[in-house]
């Protein structure tokens, strides 16, 4: 089977999953205790106000009808109107998504740049002093919540040394590279703690593999063995690991954006919760799930490209 067929099958699987995600979000929003209408209007609302609001939100129709409407809306990326900001949810998301995408992409690049060399050193010197130090650092940073890493960087590098802005974003792409560096580093540090641990294990496994020993036995230079045989195989593990951690990356972005006051979708999510803006929360959850699905798909495609066994 070729790569395209695999991707087509994955795409179908993902489409099915997204519909189920929509169902889950719909169920959450409609059947959990807590009446969004009452929350929006407060206890002193008149019956007429309540009826109006229920009609506006479509709550006066049957559940099946409501889910069908929700699916249709989701498919056309229309998530209704933000109650607090009086604009379509989708325009809010479109405004803010690029910043979040930029933040997470920078974080992934930084995380790989941090974790991969350290994992390499630790695995090559397994049991040595460098390995021990690296393992202690990753152990401790595994127990550091993202917001705390962000605060430490803010206090030291931004507020203390004034190397970076304390928050917000710039006016163009290049300014953003600068403004988003510290938040991206925050996210990268928290991601690389997990990445480092898993990658070290994966690298040790690769280094002990027969094919690495055989490559050495062929008389190849050490750097050829490492750069060609070890690295190629380690890349596959890295991509797989990144795919597995994309969910925690998005979760981390929500927190990081709050810490650094970055107007991305994560910050929007938190603000909307406090503004009781359910349409936005619902739409964002949906969009984020779709984005995660796309990343899963991309990881599958990359694996198929890097690992000839996958497309077999």
């Amino acid at each position: 089977m070729n790569i395209l067929a695999i991707l087509a099958r994955r795409l179908l699987h993902i489409a099915a999953t997204v519909v189920l995600v929509a169902l889950l979000i719909f169920v959450l929003m409609h059947f959990l205790p807590g009446d969004p209408v009452m929350m929006l209007l407060g206890d002193r609302a008149s019956d007429e106000q309540i009826a109006n609001m229920r009609h506006r939100l479509g709550f006066d129709r049957s559940v099946v009808e409501q889910f069908w409407e929700f699916l249709k809306m989701t498919a056309s990326l229309q998530f209704g109107e933000s109650v607090s900001m009086k604009v379509p949810v989708i325009s809010l998301i479109v405004d803010r998504l690029p910043i979040t995408l930029m933040l997470t992409s920078m974080a992934v690049v930084l995380a790989v740049l941090i974790a991969a060399p350290l994992a390499f050193i630790a695995a090559l010197r397994q049991g040595g002093i460098a390995d021990a130090i690296i393992r202690v650092i990753s152990q401790v940073s595994l127990s550091m919540p993202v917001f705390y890493i962000g605060l430490i960087l803010l206090i030291t590098l931004a507020a203390g040394l004034r190397w970076f802005p304390v928050g917000g974003i710039g006016e163009n792409f290049f300014q953003n590279l600068y403004y988003l560096f510290l938040p991206a580093l925050t996210l990268a540090l928290s991601l690389s703690a997990i990445l480092l641990r898993n990658l070290r294990e994966a690298l040790i496994e690769v280094l002990q593999a027969d094919y690495v020993s055989f490559a050495t036995a062929k008389g190849l230079m050490r750097h050829t063995v490492l750069g060609r045989h070890v690295l190629r195989n380690a890349w596959i593990s890295t991509i797989t690991l990144l795919g597995l951690h994309v969910g925690s990356l998005v979760g981390g972005a929500v927190i990081t954006e709050t810490v650094f006051a970055i107007p991305g979708v994560g910050r929007l999510m938190i603000d909307s919760i406090f503004a009781r803006d359910y349409a936005v929360v619902q739409g964002l959850t949906m969009i984020l799930a779709v984005m995660v699905s796309i990343v899963f798909l991309a990881v599958d495609a990359l694996q198929a490209l890097l690992d000839p066994r996958v497309s077999a």
């Binding site: 995600v21 929003m29 929350m39 994309v246 919760i273």
Partner: peptide, 20 residues
């Protein structure tokens, strides 16, 4: 499949959003 597609924190936040 569904649950790993929605980031854990986002899902928890969404539920907390509804429950308060």
């Amino acid at each position: 499949d569904v649950v790993i597609t929605i980031p854990f924190l986002v899902l928890v936040i969404a539920i907390v959003a509804v429950l308060g």
